[in-house]
């Protein structure tokens, strides 16, 4: 190895978090380019970036045999800090700022009903699938159920109740499938469910929850509807993070004995 290359690699390892910023920044840029050029914005850039992240983790897993995705590659250790529990929770909490309590009140009964039903129903369906696939312990079932809520609620719940990294990855995958499906499918079926007004957009955000999915879909249906769906879906993740490791986990535990 040439001394200059050696120097560069050392520098990147020593400044791991900055390397991660640069790398994730480049990934986001690439994803938004691909999203605009290949899918004409139909598939949201953020969802594409997450898929690239999961793909990178898969490739790293195959090549290193480790369990921590790209973090097992020495050069990419900083990604572990950027995507670690501390900054993850910090960034998630900050998204609550996008919503206000007075706006939530305007949302009315149907908004609250859609939020509660959306979270609980997604969890129940996800948990049911986990049971059907032979999982019987409460931690596994609840983590996969929470993943069907969103790809944020899954890992938050999984981490809180002590699920393994494989389960957390599964729950993220389930949430990602949901996000991508909402993004791609909702514009196609928007007319059949009457999704063309702010009210229905709020219910849509509350039922589906996945913010990137909801915003991506609404941008494709009618950009003026985005803030309405975004508002309810902002509460969805918070509600899911609140209910996942508590009420929903305990209910699962009680039912599974």
């Amino acid at each position: 190895m040439s001394p200059v290359l050696d120097l560069l690699l050392n520098l990147l390892v020593k400044n791991g978090l900055l390397t991660a910023f640069a790398l994730v920044g480049a990934t986001m840029w690439l994803s938004y380019q691909l999203s605009a050029k290949l899918t004409r914005g139909r598939l949201h850039g953020s969802a594409l970036a997450i898929m690239l992240g999961l793909l990178a983790a898969y490739v790293a897993g195959v090549s290193t045999g480790g369990k921590n995705g790209v973090v097992d590659v020495k050069l990419l250790g900083g990604v572990g800090l950027l995507g670690g529990a501390m900054l993850r929770d910090f960034a998630i909490v900050s998204t609550a700022y996008g919503a206000t309590l007075s706006d939530m009140r305007k949302c009315g009964v149907s908004g609250v009903v859609s939020l509660l039903l959306g979270v609980v129903l997604s969890f129940v369906v996800g948990a049911g699938v986990a049971l059907a696939f032979g999982y019987t312990d409460a931690v596994s079932v609840a983590t996969i159920g929470a993943g069907a809520v969103t790809y944020i609620v899954g890992p938050v719940t999984g981490a809180a109740i002590g699920a393994s990294s494989e389960l957390i990855a599964l729950s993220i995958a389930a949430g990602l499938v949901k996000s991508v499906l909402v993004m791609v499918g909702a514009p196609l079926f928007a007319r059949s469910i009457g999704l063309d007004n702010p009210r229905t957009a709020m219910v849509f955000g509350g039922m589906m929850g996945t913010t990137s999915g909801v915003c991506g879909a609404l941008a494709a249906i009618d950009p003026r509807l985005v803030p309405y769906g975004a508002m309810t879906s902002t509460f969805y993740t918070g509600l899911g993070c609140l209910m996942g490791p508590s009420v929903l986990f305990f209910a699962t535990k009680a039912l599974l004995g």
Partner: peptide
């Protein structure tokens, strides 16, 4: 709030996807 998606991308990149 704007860093939330990049953080999620970094989080996705360190999961045990092979296991999933």
């Amino acid at each position: 709030t704007a860093m939330y998606i990049p953080v999620v991308v970094a989080m996705a990149a360190q999961q045990n996807v092979l296991g999933a």
